[in-house]
């Protein structure tokens, strides 16, 4: 039952964050690239002021999978690194925390490009 509730919350919050993105696409002139940038920066800010952490606690993957979660991860990494190393942490914390995601994208992107080709569309 608990598990089901987890999924429900992930679905609801994750879906909601995506629906907001769709509203931005449909009703503003923001391009998808700008929306992604806004999401990441929003994640850093919301993480920084302590709002996003509780959302991740509540919704799990529903909050961590959307790109705001990526921003949250950056802010969390920076906070821990600054606590440990001072000002140096401001430079190292973000990308260290995001390393898994970025590296995975590079590795799988490279492998996919080796194996596949882009196809015609219809």
């Amino acid at each position: 039952m608990d598990m089901l509730l987890d999924y429900g919350k992930a679905f609801l919050i994750g879906g909601l964050l995506c629906a907001i993105g769709q509203v931005l696409i449909d009703y503003t002139k923001l391009t998808p690239a700008r929306i992604l940038v806004s999401y990441v920066v929003a994640g850093v800010i919301l993480g920084g002021i302590g709002l996003y952490g509780p959302l991740v606690e509540f919704a799990g993957a529903g909050a961590s999978v959307p790109l705001t979660g990526f921003g949250y991860l950056l802010s969390k990494g920076v906070r821990e690194a600054v606590a440990a190393h001072g000002l140096l942490g401001a430079m190292t914390g973000g990308l260290t925390a995001a390393a898994a995601g970025i590296t995975a994208a590079i590795v799988f992107g490279f492998l996919a490009a080796l194996l596949f080709k882009s196809g015609d569309k219809s």
């Binding site: 992604l36 959307p66 994208a105």
Partner: peptide, 12 residues
């Protein structure tokens, strides 16, 4: 739409 853009899969 944004449902495939906003999650980390869209970034990938």
């Amino acid at each position: 739409g944004a449902g495939t853009l906003v999650p980390i899969t869209g970034f990938a």
